[in-house]
Design a protein around this nucleic acid. Structure first.
Lengths: 226, 226
DNA sequence: GCATGGATATAAGTATGCCCGTATACGCGC
DNA sequence: GCGCGTATACGGGCATACTTATATCCATGC
């Protein structure tokens, strides 16, 4: 009999999904750097599977915008220059402010509690790798009641695409403190059902993130195009 | 030596892409109806290829939201109920109004000419199957100067996802005439660089489309969930 | 000495076959 | 007669093997 966790949590049911999850995390936490070619048979040997599920996984990651695939040339981790980061953040502003605006009036108390607990977890969490996921969880909890599942999907996709860059932000203690302050302000505005205020805090929050990130990336050698 | 068309036009370079294109069109024009299971070996035999490129094509279409894949259960053409149509149109309003707002100030005269020519083509076109593509081309031409390629990509993706439903609209002569009137109003506003007016016309245009479509679908038996 | 053409190597695309999971139907037991 | 268990069939996931395309390097000719 299958374990309780697998049967309920709808865990990865195919090798391709498992591979995709491992690769996504490895790319997000920087183990595999931007621009790295992802050879099918190389990965196949490392994972201990054939190339087929690896191909499927790469296609899935391509759909998420994390890797690029050129026919007959193979896949490589998608490089992002600062212009693309700006694009992603511009879209996040657009999508998330709309989601928040729609969500605030119908936001259940339970979700607000959940969001607050996530913020406490962020403060307590010492493992850098978890911050990205917790950050995403906080934001999505607030948007949960927006009533448009497709919108939520888009938002999640953009979080995934930018994840490894967001982690650059969150590894900076100074930014992290500012971010948490804004998060708590945002949560408070949601509690007061003050949608307009919440949206303006969110916009400010995202704009700061975007600027900090663009500066960080243009300072490094990360801004080379693929 | 390879033909000129293939080498320059960047046409489909793999079988999987060709299959994906054919399937996308077949689904869009109703040849393959919503909910139809897409069996790998069945398609493989019909296309005369093996199941592998068909698998790749199905994954690609899944990423576009046109088909759904459940592990071990296979793929089927994604069903959309009226709620999902509403979601897509809500997103189109959000994404396209932003794109238009950004694009209008920088819209080159050439693009405006191009858009007008597309409108003339729509009036002249007698082949129903081409209307969807022309409709998309018109809209994208106006958004072209928005400066955010990722935004344009999202808009195109949503056009693709809703394509077969938009065609229901466009096959209605009455709606098509109204739509063309609005298109020309929209184009005129863009020519005057009146971004606010253009956006409000666009919102009205999309809202009408959404309402017409939801009514059409709820009238039919198409609204069953998958 | 440089450029161009061809050969070779590398890696992705494609084909085929097998295995395993899921669903459905039939039978047996209660 | 109804329900549960088992068996069989259908179909998708994965592996292995082969083909094709592209890039690089070397040789040859200008």
């Amino acid at each position: 009999m299958r374990g309780f966790a697998e049967s309920v949590m709808q865990g990865p049911r195919t090798v391709a999904e498992q591979v995709a999850n491992v690769l996504r995390e490895a790319i997000a936490n920087g183990t595999i750097k931007a621009g790295t070619p992802l050879r099918q048979d190389e990965l196949a040997e490392q994972f201990g599977f054939s190339r087929m599920p690896i191909r499927d996984a790469l296609r899935q990651l391509e759909a998420e915008g994390i890797v690029s695939i050129h026919p007959t040339k193979g896949a490589h981790v998608a490089r992002m220059d600062s212009a693309e980061i700006s694009e992603i953040y511009a879209l996040r502003e657009l999508l998330e402010s709309e989601a928040l605006r729609l969500s605030v009036p119908g936001l259940a108390g339970a979700k607000l509690e959940e969001a607050e607990q996530v913020l406490d977890q962020i403060d307590a969490e010492r493992n850098v790798g978890r911050w990205g996921a917790l950050n995403r969880a906080f934001h999505l909890a607030l948007y949960h009641a927006c009533g448009n599942r497709r919108l939520l999907g888009l938002i999640e996709a953009h979080h995934n695409a930018a994840d490894r860059y967001v982690r650059i932000l969150l590894s900076n203690l100074d930014y992290r403190n500012r971010s948490q302050t804004e998060h708590r302000d945002l949560l408070a505005a949601c509690r007061r059902r003050d949608g307009d205020k919440a949206v303006s805090i969110l916009m400010q929050h995202l704009r700061e993130g975007s600027e900090t990130l663009v500066n960080a990336i243009e300072g490094d050698g990360l801004s080379r195009k693929s």
